[in-house]
Structure formats: C-alpha cells, structure tokens
Design a protein around this nucleic acid. Structure first.
Lengths: 217, 217, 217, 217
DNA sequence: GATGAATGAGAATTCATTCAT
DNA sequence: TATGAATGAATTCTCATTCAT
C-alpha cells in the first residue's frame, strides 16, 4: 500500500467521521426541535443532546437555521420512504395494503417528522424553499400511480393530482395532536380501531356503499 | 339623566373601549403569529401591528403568552362556527352540503385559525390545556350527528367517533401548506377543482363506486 | 359673613383638605417604602395603599422621589419627638428615665422610622441632603444637655458631642434587624429583659462597677 | 508529565480562573451596591465596574439577586474575622483591647460590609435567609466569652446574650452614616477622639464612675 | 478539531410620568 | 381635581455566534 493510498484512506476516514458527526447532530437537533419547536430550542440544548460542545456545532453547520434546513431538506424522510416505492402498486389489493400501511405508520413518533410538520408545514418561507419541491415530487409520483390505476380500471375515476394531495394531507393530519393524542388516554386496541375507521373512510368514503369488510358480515 | 346614570354610562363606555382594544390586539397578534409563529414574533411587532406602544400591550394582557392563550382559547373559532349547528343535519343531502361547505370554507386564510394550527396543534402542552376539551366537544357533537345518520339509514355503517375525528383531521389538513399553497401559483378554478376532488374522496372514498356526479355522465 | 370671608373659608378648607391628603399619601408611602424599600416600591402600590389613582399622586407631589424626600425631611419623626424635650433633664434620675424610655420606644415598628433608616441612613446623598442637618441639630441639642449634666455633676466627665452621637447610634442600631428580630421567636418578657440589659450597658458600661440595681441585692 | 496530568492541570487552571473572575465580579458588585443600593444598581453598572460584558455576568451568576446573595452569604465578612478569635480573651486587658480594636476597625469603608448593612440588615427576608444564622453564631460565640469573663470575675455581672447583641449592634451602628459621616468634614484626630469616647462609654457607661484614664489625672 | 467563556444585540417586561377625558 | 390608559426609556436576562486556548 502506497503512502498516497494511506493518505487517501485517511482522508476518506475523516470524511466518514465528519459525516457521522453531522448525522448525530441532526438526530439530536430534530429531537429537540420536535419537543420545543425551532425558535424555542437553544444551541446549548442541541449541543447537550448531541453530547458535544456548543462551539463545536459550528464546525459542522454554519448556523442554527442551517441545522433546521438540513433536517427539513434531507431525504428521505419517513414519508418519503413510504411513498418512495409506490411504483410497484399495480393492482387493487396492493394499493389497499399500501394505504393501510401508510395510515398505521408510527411516523408521528419520530422527531424528524414532527419537526418537519411543526416548522416547514406551518411556515410559508421554509415550506416554499425546502418542502414544496419535495412534496411536488412525491405528489406527482403518487399521482402517476393513481392515474395508472384509473386507466387499468382497479381505481374508480379520480383526479390523480387532487387525490394524491388529499391522501398526503390525510396522512399529515394523522400526525397532529387532535388525531394522535385524543382522547388523552387510549388503549392500543382503541387506537387500532380508530385507524381502521380512518382507512375505511379513506377507501370507501362517508357516503359510499358498505365496505367489503362489512359486506362479508 | 342623573349623575349616577352618567357615571354608569361612563363606566360602560370605558369597558367597551377596553374590550375593543383587546380585540384589536388579538387580531394584530394573530396575524403576526400566523406569519412568523409565536416564538419568532416579537412584542414590538405585535405592538406595531396593533398600532400602540409596546408597553401598552401589558395594560391588556399580562404577557406575550397570555395573548397567545387568549387567541387559542377564545371561542368560537371558524371551525367552531362551522360545526356549531350540525344538529339540524337530518338527511343525506344536507349532510353532503355541509361537508362541501366545510371543505370549501376559506378558514385557512384567517390568521386566527392558522395561529391555532401552528401553535396549539403542534404543541403538546398548549393543546392539552386549551384545545383538547374544545376539540372533544366538537367531536362528540359531530359524532352524534353521524350516529343519527347511521341509525336513520342515510349514512352507511360508520364508527361515529372515529369518523368525526377523521373528518375534522381532514379539514385541518386542508388548512396547512401542502394543501393550500401548492402549487405556488394556482388559478381559482384549479383550486375549486382540487377542493371538489377532495370532497369527492371524502364522500365516496378512493375505492368507492362512481360518485353520483360521475354516474350522470 | 361677607362673600370675601366665604371665599376665604373655602380657600382655607381646600388647603386643609390638600394637606390632609398629602399626609395620607405620605403615611401610605412610608408604609410601602418600609416594607419593600424605596426603589422596589412602585407608584402603583403607593397609590393603592393611599386609596387614590396613580395619576393623582402627581397632584400632590412632583415625583416619586419627592415623596421620599417629604418623608425623610418632615419633622418631627419619632426620634425627634423623643429628643425634642431633653432640655428639661436637670438631674440624674430624669436622665436615666429618659434613656430607658428611648431604648424601649417601639419606634422600629413605625414605617416612618424604618423608611428613614432604610433609605437615608444608608444612602450618602439622601443623608447629606436631608438628614445630616437634622441629626446635627438633635446631636447638638442633646450634647448641650450632657454638657449641662457634666457641669452640674450628675454626669461623670464625658465628651458631650461624642456621647450624644454614640447614644443616637445605639438607638438606631436597636431599630435594625439583628437587634429586633433575633432570635426569630421571642417572648415579650425576653425582649424586655434584653432591652433592660442594653439600658444597663449603656448606663454603666461593660466594665463598670455594679449597677445600682445590682448593688441593692 | 503525562497527558492526563496535563489535562488535570488545564482543568484546575480553568477552575481557578473562574473562581478569580467570580471574585472580581463580587468585588465590583459590592462596590456598586454599597453606593447605590441593590435595587438602584443596574447590571450594566456592575458589568462596567467588573470590566466585562453585561451578558458575561450570567456565565458566573444566574441573576442579579444571586450576586447579592453571594455577597451576603459569603464568609468571613470583616465582622466575622473580628469576632472569629474571641476565644482567647481571658482577662480584662485583652477584652478591653478587643473592644477598642472592634470600634476602631475601618470596616465601614469596605463595600462588602456596607452592602450587607444596606441590604440584609434592613430587609426582613434577606436577613432571615442569609444573615440570621450567621449573626446567631457570632452572638453565641461572643456570649460565651462574656459568660466566661463574668464567671472569672474580670467582667461585672452581665447577661451574656443581651450584652453580646448590644455590642454587635453598637459596632453596626458605627458603620452607618450618622456615626461615620458627621460632621461632613472631620480631621482624623477628631475622628479618633470620637471613637475613643464611644469606647469609653461602651466600657464604662454613661453613669459609671470615672474611667481609669480619667482617674489617672 | 474541540472547547466553553466572552460578547452584545435584542427579547420581554416594568414603571414613573403624562395627558386626554 | 380625579382618573387610569398610553407611553417609551430603561431593566434584567437570553442566546446565537465568535474566538482564544
């Protein structure tokens, strides 16, 4: 092994270490942001959560806001991962299964997602700058699946774009408090039951005919 | 008119002026909070928006947080007003019309609503303290309507509580950015079209049979 | 009674009312100052204590500090009253009796006195401006009595001025906490006993021969 | 020297620097408090006096009040040091000498002591919380000395506790303005003369027989 | 690269004083 | 003359960012 290779390796190793550290900081920061919100979180708290000195943060990010931006713009988020591979949805059963998984996904527990909802989805500027394109991409990808389903006949006639947006909106709504934390104390069974109802409504609508499940009875 | 009456009138007049001023401050503050979020908003901005001196805020509210709480806990919010008189919904057509109105309601434009979503619905403590009971009341009232509809047969079998929550969640989701502001520029017609699709999905589901509108074609 | 007299009477009556009001405000303010100190007391509190509107204070005094100055420079204070008529002290028994009364005087309970101690006696400027001359007058008057006593032989040879100051200092010290409030809980008897000891020391000294009282035993 | 030792030394050095800085701030603050009083002093002035930025104060103390408390509760104060070693007073001459030193001590010039008098000795809460126990300890220690003196016969019969309190009160009184600053301009000789008179009165009382000094004449 | 003390701009809040009613 | 809302300067305290070690 040559000196040059050694040097190369050392460089790569350092790169990896830096990258790992950045990741740790983002995890810690997302956790703090999710709890207190971006503005109320302090760099001191973030540093403590990342087990690092306050000043050291600035070796990895240029500002507190830069950390937030990194969290928001980084891909893939849990929702991303969920929607990432919708391309393979080629029949009704797979689609139903996908909707069920999406609704039941415990995404809201993840600091990452809560931070994005709290900050980007309620802030015009952040949303436009870092999330809009992202969401657009997801929407159009999902819209294509719906469009395919409609053409293939395993979905009823639906406006692909509007439908994609409505589904994403519903998934988001399930991550906010009124859906998550109410009633304050809830058994896991009740929660499952509630989710099942949501899936049912999403799939068959308020006014629709009996859902297949009910038809069986 | 006696002196006493004069005094009474003066007292009442002052009371009204104070109340009006409080209202102005709340409007101004809600507008600022909606744009920048509670934590990032400064009392200086709020005072400027309300066109009074910074110190004068404290003649009407004891703290910045007190202003936020007043906004959040004040009733009725636009959503309240919407759901307030659902008791009269006694047949399918009225129910459908109600859902349509609810989705189309321009509530999201109102600073008031956006402040509540931004702060209370993403903050555990605020939500528990000021909104939880509120939402619970709305939910149970709406659930009763659904329950009535199911019994009367103009609604298919639905879990009343879960359904109520799902509908409210959807209405909320429609007030957040991904549903409102995307794509950034949108013609009113496109927006209406999008809303119509959302209504359609809410009423008839993703997998449902053709909606009545489509059946006509 | 002529119109002029009527007018005169009205004027005098108003004068008296104003004076009475000023007095009330000073009483109230002294009470507040004694508790919280001048700087920490607010005009709002003073107004509340005087049962008057905040703005009305300024019809009687030109500033908060003006109120303090009025309290401090007003005569006679309790100490003044005590020392006012020392001119009649013409023999040993009267002098002893006077010392006893001075030490036992419950002056410290009075807001007036506590305010003077708290503010003027620990503040260079206030003291120089408003109390120095006052104290000097008292001191020289008391020094004359001592001088007379020494000449007449019913007091041992003492430096009149230094003695006057030392006695006044001791009376002051008895109004401060370490002498008043310690130990925290104290029976009235214990307090009397403590005062008696102080009088004894003041009259006969630490190293002196037995006090007359003790000699009797 | 190992790396570990190096690290240890660095740690210790920083600790010392922090401690030194705290001390500087306390000195500066005591000086400001002594002049203007706690409430009227501003953090800006304290910072300026300590020659650091205003915000830096909060790296060493958690609040302005915390600085005051640190000054007040810190031991030993000048008075402490004075009374600390009274245990060795075993005869009349030593006792007389001690009293003389205590009265003549230039303690009042020290900001530290003036701050304690100004704030703690005129403020119920501060006194109870931070000084009461302190004074009690001093008092009981000094009372034991007096008790010993009485038993041994080189002190006349005195109530030990009350006497201890009276002496401490007198020492305190000598630190306040009427004793210190009057008359405004005073030659050192006059001051000494005044102190001597105070000592004389303290030792032999107002009514006592001629002091030893006078007997010599 | 890591540290954490130093900084100072800016935040919320208080309060003596003024002034329209 | 009495009132108390309005004012804004001043205060305490926070915190993102910098920088010497």
């Amino acid at each position: 092994m040559t000196d040059d290779q050694n040097h190369q390796d050392g460089f790569a190793r350092r790169e990896r270490r830096v990258e790992r550290r950045r990741e740790e900081i983002l995890q810690a920061a997302a956790s703090v942001f999710a709890t207190k919100g971006y503005a109320a979180a302090t760099t001191r708290e973030i540093a403590a959560a990342a087990d690092i000195a306050e000043g050291s943060l600035y070796n990895y990010f240029s500002s507190k806001r830069d950390i937030l931006v990194a969290i928001i713009s980084r891909s893939p988020s849990p929702v991303d991962r969920l929607l990432a591979d919708t391309a393979h949805l080629t029949d009704r059963d797979q689609f139903v299964q996908f909707i069920e998984q999406a609704v039941m996904a415990p995404a809201p527990e993840q600091p990452w997602m809560r931070t994005i909802i709290k900050e980007a989805w309620t802030d015009d500027e952040l949303f436009r700058q870092y999330q809009a394109g992202h969401i657009e991409k997801l929407t159009s990808r999902f819209a294509r699946v719906i469009s395919g389903g409609v053409k293939a006949g395993w979905l009823r006639p639906l406006d692909p774009d509007a439908t994609a947006r409505a589904v994403i909106a519903l998934l988001m709504a399930f991550m906010m408090h009124p859906m998550r934390a109410c009633p304050a104390v809830e058994t896991p069974e009740a929660r499952t039951q509630r989710m099942q109802s949501a899936i049912d409504i999403l799939l068959y609508g308020l006014m629709g005919h009996q859902s297949p499940e009910q038809e069986k009875e």
